[in-house]
Amino acid sequence: SGLELDSVLPEIREQIEALFPRYPEKRGALLPAIYLVQAKKGYVDEQDARVLAELFDIKPVEVWEVLSFYNMFYTTPQGRHHVHVCTNLPCSLRGSRSLLKSLESHLGIRCGQTTSDGRITLMHEECLGSCGTAPVMRVDGEYVENLNLDEAKRVLDGLG
């Protein structure tokens, strides 16, 4: 898997290095760099962390600590689509937790799991900053607002 990164590295390396001057110290570009790797291969594993560490002149464990601190970084392969249902208070008050349970049974998985065909990873998420249009879910980065169960199922079924 590290080889995958190595093979895309020439291209990514240039993109990453182009970010360095934006920060007084190049380490500032670490989060953006992780996003770039993740955009290419969907997650960042130990081998990738070693390559990034070398590029940033830090220890692999320092990259790893960052990877595990942030919710939006993934260290294992993910489903082709990410579905995150908000379960914070304003969304819960408007039924998001019952909705999430129905989606679990619709997909036949529990929250945190990926469907066996690798199509969807289902997660819950804290407030998405869209409480005025609750309940809300995030599908591959796009917000789907004012959800009801039928609409949510329709969106999920439409994911290839």
């Binding site: 380490r27 500032g28 989060l31 953006p32």
Partner: peptide, 27 residues
């Protein structure tokens, strides 16, 4: 002006957590 994306951690809203995160560290 540089636009910088966080990566999903509430504590990065606290100003010094944010500064750590901006430096490429845990927030």
């Amino acid at each position: 002006i540089v636009v910088h994306s966080g990566a999903g951690a509430y504590i990065c809203g606290e100003e010094t957590g944010l500064l750590e995160s901006l430096e490429g560290k845990k927030g």
